[in-house]
Nucleic acid binder design. Structure first.
Lengths: 208, 208
DNA sequence: TTAATTCTTGATCACTTGGTCAAGAGCGGA
DNA sequence: TCCGCTCTTGACCAAGTGATCAAGAATTAA
């Protein structure tokens, strides 16, 4: 079949090395940002020579975009699963808890995005204005519905979502600051989770 | 007097140029981060030649530290002025409104710090663990006092402060994302201010 | 086995960047 | 005016970086 030629399947080695590369790239890009990271660092990080790395991704930017896209989808999953049929306060609570745990378990992904957006979001600007905006608008409408039904306090849904993003990702993105002020004990994150949940729930629960 | 020799006063030109440099440096460092920024960019930004710039600050890092320190003090002023003798809810409200306006009017300072902390806070780590922690602990104690008096809902004061920082600075640090989702109209920031204030006030006001 | 394809790398290049230096221009006080 | 000090700059350097290339090694399909 000519098919095998027009759509070349990925080699075992290819798939394996690309995975190694993306893993090392997340490590390096999240720590130093796009401009601060070097191809050499990534190559060393995954045990490949620099020319070999550039055999799989021809330009540094290609690696960067690849690791961004590879991580983006998972990052939005919690918001995506906000259920319009659920109990409003319970849904919001679950969203906050899921989001802060995601930040705790994937701080590098959080920092990768933070850095990208902080510096203008040039690589994912299209994604923000397209799929991301669509998703946020959709979920904001759901929240607005709950507000109209009197199930939640009347706050702007978009800004509510921003507030949840900001507070939960704060613990990953600004870790050195958090560490400096309250230390890095494991119970800090648990306390953070409870505090944020309580703050938002009390802020959103209508006074009877 | 020998005093004039041991403590050389700053020349007019010196003071003037250093101010120019710090201004241009904030511009460049906030946009590209420490590693991403170049001395050439800063030099061009303030109309000096590169060697001339390096005559005033011998190393790139010296400029960076100078602009960080130059901005740090002002940045913490709102928290510093949290008044233990004031009305709790009013004090918190004023703090949030002051902070979000500071972020709106000085987004570059916000981004400068965000980038510094995001990349490990190596240049200001000492400041975070020293003066910053002291200030936060002091103000957290005040808030804790208000809680004990039953004037505020029982939430962890440290995490409350983190939440206020995160939500207010979000609009400066993640501007491209906010812009992509809700646009950049002037009323967006006003709406943000009202939403955050309402959220925190309702979250903190004790149920009678 | 064999031949085509994929994978790997040492050497190298063009370019950027932080930093130096010596020499000259400009300024201020006596 | 004159002298010492500050300020300014063109030329330059060494290190680091993204990217290329040709040639060889390994893998795969027949």
């Amino acid at each position: 079949m000519g098919e095998a030629k027009t759509i070349p399947r990925k080699t075992r080695i290819q798939a394996q090395n690309e995975e190694l590369i993306l893993k090392a790239a997340l490590e390096v890009f999240s720590a130093y940002g796009f401009r601060g990271a070097t191809v050499d660092q990534i190559a060393t990080g995954c045990g490949l020579s620099k020319p070999n790395l550039l055999y799989y991704f021809r330009r540094k930017e290609d690696i960067y975009v690849a690791v961004l896209e590879h991580t983006l989808h998972d990052w939005l999953e919690p918001l995506r699963s906000l259920d319009p049929a659920g109990v409003p306060i319970a849904e919001i609570t679950r969203y906050i808890r899921t989001k802060i745990r995601l930040s705790r378990d994937n701080p590098k992904a959080s920092r990768l995005f933070a850095n990208e957006i902080l510096h203008g979001a040039t690589a994912i600007g299209g994604y923000l204005k397209g799929p991301l905006k669509e998703l946020v608008d959709e979920k904001a409408a759901i929240i607005q519905g709950w507000i109209t039904e009197g199930k939640l306090n009347a706050v702007d849904p978009h800004h509510l979502i921003f507030a949840i993003w900001a507070t939960t990702q704060h613990y990953a993105d600004f870790e050195p600051q958090v560490q400096a002020v309250v230390g890095g004990a494991p119970e800090v994150m648990a306390k953070a989770e409870d505090t944020l949940t309580k703050l938002f729930v009390e802020g959103l629960r209508p006074r009877s």
